[in-house]
């Protein structure tokens, strides 16, 4: 870290006015935005700016003179500050002004042509894309829906959610972004879908998964059980002697996307009654199984 007095080119006894004058003189020469093509200008400007920060604050200047802080204590510029020139160089700069070479762009030689193109390109530049996030209920994603976004800058945006979009997917709405600063088309709205989970359903690709609790009696004797699907309830036939973990498939009740249609896979979960069942207890106490069924045979 260089001596701040040396950096600004002033004497140690310089007055506040002299320091300000010296800083201004250097800043005008070195400011990166006034030297867009000079990579070193930024480094030198930072040195000058931090020297000025230190010496223009009487208390810090006093502490520096007394040796209490070193020159690096004056570092203030954030490390990755971006200057205007960094944006202006990227193109698509709405502030760009092409009048400086309007006269060169007359005529029909190679450079006139290039310059005309450059100006034309700037004029026809599309507006910026705008990013949004939209929370969508699980069922709306499965069945498809139309949602309305209220925009932070006012107005609304209608978003058609096609059936089967994935969590995190981005929908592009052409022409719904920011207007062009010139005469180009507007940008696009990019809407990221965030799916709100469902209490019962989950999704695996095009299939919907559901855990369905059934009673011991329904599992043992078979039954028809009302089962929710994304498009309403249906009666599901539980075969005799069903087990926890058995999966039944409801064809076509999954996610319908263009061309493909998934199933709903219902996983059974046999539930013991939670209330006391003396008759069931008595029956089981007297019951001798006919076969030698051992569920832990494989263990």
């Amino acid at each position: 870290m260089k001596d701040p007095y040396e950096t600004l080119g002033v004497a140690k006894t310089a007055s506040a006015d002299e320091i300000r004058t010296a800083y201004r003189k250097l800043a005008k020469k070195l400011h990166p935005d006034l030297n867009p093509g000079d990579k070193q200008a930024e480094e030198r400007f930072k040195e000058v700016a931090s020297a000025n920060d230190l010496l223009s604050d009487p208390e810090r200047r006093r502490r520096f003179d007394a040796g209490e802080i070193d020159a690096s204590g004056a570092e203030k510029a954030p490390p990755n500050a971006r200057y205007y020139r960094d944006y202006a160089a990227q193109g698509g700069n709405p502030y760009e002004n092409h009048s400086a070479y309007g006269d060169f762009a007359q005529g029909d030689d190679l450079f006139a042509d290039l310059l005309r193109r450059s100006a034309e390109q700037a004029r026809r530049r599309p507006g910026a894309d705008l990013h949004y996030e939209l929370a969508v209920d699980f069922l709306d994603v499965v069945n498809g829906a139309t949602k309305t976004i209220t925009l932070p800058q006012g107005g609304t945006l209608n978003v058609t959610i096609p059936a089967g979009v994935e969590d995190g997917q981005i929908l592009r709405l052409r022409g719904k972004g920011a207007p062009s600063p010139g005469e180009g088309p507007p940008g696009d709205a990019l809407v990221q879908i965030v799916v709100t989970p469902h209490r019962h359903f989950t999704r695996e690709g095009a299939d919907i998964l559901l855990d369905l609790p059934i009673t011991v009696k329904e599992a043992a004797l078979g039954a028809e059980v009302r089962t929710p699907t994304p498009t309403g309830s249906v009666m599901l036939k539980i075969p005799k002697r069903s087990n926890t973990g058995d999966v039944l498939r409801l064809r076509g009740k999954g996610v319908k996307t263009r061309g493909a249609s998934g199933d709903e896979r219902v996983k059974l979960k046999v539930m013991m009654p939670t209330d006391a069942e003396p008759e069931l207890d008595a029956f089981l106490a007297d019951w001798t199984p006919a076969g030698a069924y051992d569920p832990r045979k494989e263990m």
Partner: peptide, 9 residues
């Protein structure tokens, strides 16, 4: 603004 347009051109 003119300088940046010139630089890009």
């Amino acid at each position: 603004d003119q300088m940046h347009a010139l630089r890009r051109a």
